[in-house]
Design a binder for these strands. Structure first.
Lengths: 190, 190
DNA sequence: ACCTGAACACCGTTCAAGT
DNA sequence: ACCTGAACACCGTTCAAGT
């Protein structure tokens, strides 16, 4: 709004501005609010202008997903079991703050961007310190990630449990997640 | 096509016909091919005619998801561990045949329809025979389901693994799924 | 109750043109 | 290289009207 741009004049668009606008829309209106046209509207730009900086909507979503993972820092404990537990539990907590995105993380296993890679490396190091390496470490890592994102999906999109007890509390689900995590960690580290 | 219907004339539409058409579209064109308008096109009907039999697209998708689970039969073994293993592995295999739907199963945990309930009951009985009941059985069931659908999601939507070895084979992923399943079963049943 | 016609309020993406 | 205008080929859903 204000002085309308003519074809040829610059809008000062950047990849980062696009990702930020997408994140804002996401927190304000949820996943259904995140459309290319809505991002363009927010940046006061024609819809197709985005395609000068982003290949497709899928690419933009991938960028947003990895961006969010940037909030996770490396655990400071040295004990492998404690380090894995702490990192996975803060991942679980982070995912719960973005309910709409959890299915997307699952579909892509969250492992497309640099932040996801960094976290994967941290966990691989922990496993190595616990004596788990090579092919077995890769397998263990997958089981841990699947359990974490999968349980976050369950917590954010609970099925209608028929007949039985009332709705599940967040605390119950988190305890359930931890119980399963412990089973897996015992399987991996003994 | 043929004699065009006027407003008021019946098309013989049924809920089942709609679900079947949706399943056909799904196997032919994938998830993106499944739109209300495409279903209507296939049934030679106006798009909004579907709303006389189905509340929304989401409701239709739920119906399709449960319909597919109908292909799973109850395991014939009596040993709890073997029964759970067999049922979950055939669930895994079934999910792999419908790659596009796996993220949807995860989001809804597949537990909306009668087929999903039936399978849940079967597993609950197995757990009871293994000495796991009540609250602990509910927790165990969730961990097993999350692991199974989660791994199916991983297998059908593998992330780009950077640098390292080539693409994962289906056999490797299935073995990985089994390994994790065994860890969980040990945690549950000892 | 079941269907059509028409409309509403959107989508993602491409192509040509402007500077 | 970066942007606008205009268009293409779609969506899900609602509302009024017909029998």
């Amino acid at each position: 709004v204000g002085a309308p741009r003519t074809p040829g004049s610059r809008a000062g668009l950047t990849r980062d501005a696009i990702v930020s606008a997408a994140r804002e829309l996401l927190t304000e209106d949820g996943l259904q609010g995140l459309s290319m046209r809505a991002v363009a509207r927010r940046l006061d730009v024609a819809p197709n202008a985005l395609y000068s900086h982003v290949d497709s909507k899928a690419a933009l979503v991938d960028e947003v997903l990895d961006d969010i993972l940037g909030a996770l820092d490396e655990p400071e404990v040295t004990d492998p079991r404690a380090a894995l537990r702490r990192l996975l539990m803060s991942t679980y907590d982070l995912l719960l703050q973005h309910p709409d995105l959890v299915p997307l993380y699952l579909a892509r296993q969250g492992a497309r961007g640099p932040n996801a890679r960094r976290l994967g490396d941290v966990m691989t190091e922990s496993l190595a310190r616990g004596g788990v390496e090579g092919r077995r470490a890769v397998e263990a890592l997958r089981v841990l990630i699947v359990h974490t994102i999968g349980f976050a999906a369950f917590a954010t999109h609970p099925p209608v449990e028929p007949g039985a007890a009332g709705p599940l509390t967040a605390a119950e689900l988190r305890a359930n997640f931890e119980t399963g995590l412990e089973w897996v960690l015992v399987g991996i580290l003994g």
